[in-house]
């Protein structure tokens, strides 16, 4: 066996081990740490499979952002944890759970193994028509042009998720600000990082969006980096989360889907169909949508991690 397949097998094995360890971990926080490590290893697997766009998404969202959300959840649950972890499943319950898991795993395996070979794919068609948008990255082509409808609805789903988080607020805090972070030492390392890193992160986030025209990257990955920079500033206490009822914040939140929808309806009125772009203007139109989207997505992701409003809008 040559060295490269051996390394691939090694990484795949570690992914499986970390996955099992994450499920088996008793302590919630340990499970979260396992999940983050699992996501990063999975990103490596995607790179090895030749899907750097998916790898970036997995690392930024599956591991980074979901990790931050889960750490927040684990911290909130910590108070009630001892009482929950002493509840153990009985013998019959365990057998039932194991049987159910085995059946699901077997069903997935059967479906995967009975897929036609070669699998039905639109990849060749997407590659053949890549020229119409003058974008070099086929993944961006699919996300922003061929299947733009899915991407637009994805943004709406993200807004619905934020509404779900906001609706956890108590009545007096409705439209207010999330719980403030613990005051960081103004001379401490976190504040220093929150001052030094954001300029780098903002440039990086925008560049990940910009290069996605021809190279791996994208609006979602760039937005995640921007959201991370915002959260860093918030955690260091250098800024406050805007009140959920604020008009400017709400304008930013609807900007992405609104621009997308406007372009879509424009395509319906002037062009061939909903979300059809004029061929000569495809790239500028896509860029306008992506920049509006990146603003909305970054803000939404940051607010999702910040949590439901707990303080009234007045300071």
């Amino acid at each position: 066996m040559t060295i490269v397949p051996a390394l691939d097998l090694f990484v795949a094995g570690i992914v499986l081990i970390v996955a099992v360890w994450t499920v088996a971990a008793r302590d919630t926080m340990s499970a979260v740490v396992g999940f983050v490590a699992y996501g990063l290893l999975l990103a490596l697997v995607w790179v090895r499979l030749g899907a750097p766009d998916v790898a970036l998404t997995e690392a930024a969202i599956g591991s980074g952002l979901a990790g931050a959300l889960l750490i927040g959840a684990a911290t909130r649950l910590r108070a009630g944890e001892p009482s929950v972890s002493t509840e153990r499943l009985g013998g019959a319950g365990r057998v039932l759970a194991m049987t159910l898991s085995a059946v699901v795993a077997a069903a997935v395996a059967v479906v995967l193994l009975s897929l036609p070979d070669p699998a039905p794919s639109l990849a060749s068609e997407a590659a053949a028509n890549a020229g119409v948008t003058s974008l070099g990255n086929p993944v961006t082509n699919v996300l922003m042009a061929f299947r733009a409808m899915d991407t637009m609805l994805e943004k709406v789903v993200l807004l619905l998720a934020l509404l779900g988080v906001w609706s956890m607020a108590r009545d007096h805090a409705w439209g207010g600000r999330p719980r403030s972070c613990r005051r960081a030492d103004p001379e401490g390392p976190l504040v220093l990082l929150a001052r030094v890193l954001p300029p780098v992160g903002v440039v990086l986030g925008i560049s990940v969006l910009w290069v996605s025209a021809d190279h791996p990257g994208g609006a979602f990955q760039g937005a995640t980096i921007l959201a991370a920079m915002w959260l860093l500033v918030l955690m260091a206490g250098l800024g406050d989360v805007p009140a959920a009822g604020g008009r400017r914040l709400r304008l930013v939140l609807v900007a992405g889907p609104a621009v997308f929808l406007t372009v879509g309806l424009g395509g319906l009125a002037l062009g061939a169909a909903f979300l059809s772009y004029p061929p000569a203007w495809a790239k500028p139109v896509i860029l306008v949508i992506e920049f509006a989207m990146v603003l909305t997505v970054a803000t939404t992701l940051g607010l999702l991690v910040a949590g439901p409003p707990e303080r009234s809008a007045e300071r």
Binding site: G188, P189, L190, L192, L193, V196, L197
Partner: peptide
């Protein structure tokens, strides 16, 4: 930068 900050924290 990240390593130094995180280990301090």
């Amino acid at each position: 930068l990240a390593g130094a900050t995180v280990s301090q924290l």
